[in-house]
Amino acid sequence: MTTTKLMRRADAEDFVYAEAALLDGGRFGEWLELFAEDGVYWVPANEADNDPERHVSIIYDTRDGLADRIARYQLGRVVQEVPSRTLHLVGNVRVVEDAEPDVVEVTAAMVLYEVHGARTTVHPAQCRYLLTPGPQGWRIVLKKVAFLDNDQYFPNLAYLF
């Protein structure tokens, strides 16, 4: 039995649903604000889990890297000339035992739809968050998106998950 949890499940659900709404609404600047200064956005390649220090990732962005990525997407050049529209369907939200004194671990299942021109793709994923409380609410220390099909050949993934 878990005794002390920093975050209730309802709060975790509110958080990931609001985050999904920012992504689907194209409000990337506000989404970036959810990340802690030392936050990391990680999308592993080939497996659900591996050591990003030793294994290539699809994305392993610090907050600065994420800011560059968003700036690039917002220029609207080439692949973003017709921006991808996304729908993040998030569920199975659970608050895992507190990871550290000030950090809570949240897991969620995600079905991500992307529409890019005439193409619609669907990617199922397991998401894992490490969140820390701050004056403006919860901040992301880590967001990990493990695509179930990350051992397969991908089409472009030039948007945010």
Binding site: V43, A45, P52, E53, H55, V56, S57, I58, I59, Y60, G65, D68, R69, R72, R77, V78, V79, F154, P155, N156, L157, A158
Partner: peptide, 19 residues
């Protein structure tokens, strides 16, 4: 690895534009 990811691969800063 980080240098590679910055430009290449399905989410890289350059690869998707080629595709």
């Amino acid at each position: 690895l980080r240098t590679h990811e910055a430009f290449y691969g399905p989410s890289g800063g350059g690869g998707p534009d080629d595709i």
